[in-house]
């Protein structure tokens, strides 16, 4: 008997047996229920409107310290001149022959900085920073790029409100619009 037939036959048996729910097709049902606590530990992604941002807070002034200790060796002083990706400058270059894409010149959402730095940086110790350290170093990168002030506090409230300079220069090929806009 083919797999497809086997599943079809199983469906009839269950339907006749009055199985609970509106199942019209047999399923394997081999997943176990995930608890809220499990999900909370697992879910590290941040939506562009800020959903998912954790508690904690930081300023660029605090972030300067984090950056010097944990980032500068690879990304250079003030985000420029390191062996790895440049993190500052480049605004006004995107339509030129030699565009410089950075957090400041290119990234459309500030929430992405928090999401990415927390999950992937520092490169050799990802997921090692506290949420407040991530807020602080995110604030530092935004301040380096002239987007927020040195004492502006970044937290779950304020970060999603930061307007990135290049935000409107992405053409969505898939039809999708941010909700409420």
């Amino acid at each position: 008997m083919s797999t497809r037939k086997a599943f079809a036959v199983a469906t009839c048996v269950i339907v006749l047996g009055g199985c609970a729910g509106a199942a019209t097709r047999e399923t394997s049902n081999l997943g176990r229920a995930a608890t809220p606590a499990e999900i909370a530990g697992w879910d590290i992604s941040i939506a562009p409107d800020g959903r998912g941002l954790p508690q904690g807070a930081g300023t660029a002034a605090q972030g300067a310290l984090v950056y010097a200790q944990k980032c500068q060796a690879c990304h250079g002083e003030k985000g420029v001149g390191g062996p790895n990706d440049r993190l500052a400058g480049g605004q006004g270059t995107l339509a030129s022959k030699t565009p410089v894409r950075t957090v400041g010149s290119y990234w459309p959402y500030a929430t992405t900085v928090f999401d990415y730095v927390r999950r992937a940086m520092p490169f050799l110790q990802p997921l090692s920073m506290t949420d407040s350290e991530v807020y602080a170093v995110t604030a530092y990168l935004l301040n380096l790029n002239g987007i927020i002030g040195e004492q502006d506090v970044m937290n779950a409230e304020t970060l999603p409100k930061v307007r990135m300079p290049n935000r409107d220069n992405f053409i969505l090929v898939q039809p999708w619009k941010p909700r409420g806009q």
Binding site: S45, I46, A47, P48, D49, L94, A95, P99, R101, V103, Y106, W107, P108, Y109, T111, T112, D115, Y116, A120, N169, F170, I171, L172, V173, Q174, W176, P178, R179
Partner: peptide, 25 residues
């Protein structure tokens, strides 16, 4: 309900055009 706008669908893997606009997705 929305895309998450991860680093690898914003900073990277978007196609910068000559006019400075970028194609996304």
């Amino acid at each position: 309900d929305t895309p998450t706008m991860t680093k690898d669908e914003t900073s990277k893997y978007t196609d910068l055009q000559a006019d400075g606009k970028s194609l996304m997705f």
